[in-house]
């Protein structure tokens, strides 16, 4: 089972993607959610850039748009995992899942298979 599917099954997220150095490396967003993915990538990248310039210690950003929640979690300086969830998703559980599965995300990022 993929990590995305596992998170879906636990009711944490709808879809997710992994970014490295601002580039999309892995994604479970279906084609019909292409626009959602674009908004998530651009907005969370902008937010984390602004954070870098102005503040320290922030590794998590959530943006609620309509009934959607876009969440970004920094895994390290260059890697960010982004999720689309229902607007009332439990962000504490998502955060905990990431902490418990950080290595799996890095493994996925380092996997040579195409995204």
């Amino acid at each position: 089972m993929t990590i995305w599917r596992e998170m879906q099954d636990e009711g944490l997220i709808l879809y997710g993607c992994l970014m490295f150095g601002g580039e999309l490396k892995r994604s479970s967003f279906p084609a019909e959610y292409k626009k959602h993915l674009a908004v998530a990538k651009q907005s969370l990248t902008y937010i984390f850039r602004s954070v870098e310039k102005n503040a320290k210690g922030y590794d998590e950003a959530h943006m609620e748009i309509g009934d959607n929640l876009f969440s970004g979690f920094r895994l390290d300086k260059d890697s960010v995992v982004i999720f689309l969830s229902e607007h009332d998703a439990n962000t504490l559980h998502i955060r905990q899942f990431i902490e418990d599965n950080k290595k799996r995300f890095f493994d996925l990022l380092n996997d040579s298979q195409p995204a």
């Binding site: 908004v39 937010i47 210690g57 998590e60 950003a61 959530h62 943006m63 609620e64 748009i65 309509g66």
Partner: peptide, 28 residues
Amino acid sequence: IDRLTDAISDKAGFLGKVNNVVLAGPDV
């Protein structure tokens, strides 16, 4: 961030309005 939310609400209207943005970290 507030400027960004205005831009997204304008350009990605299909999603609805941006209600809020929250930044968090373990020690801040």
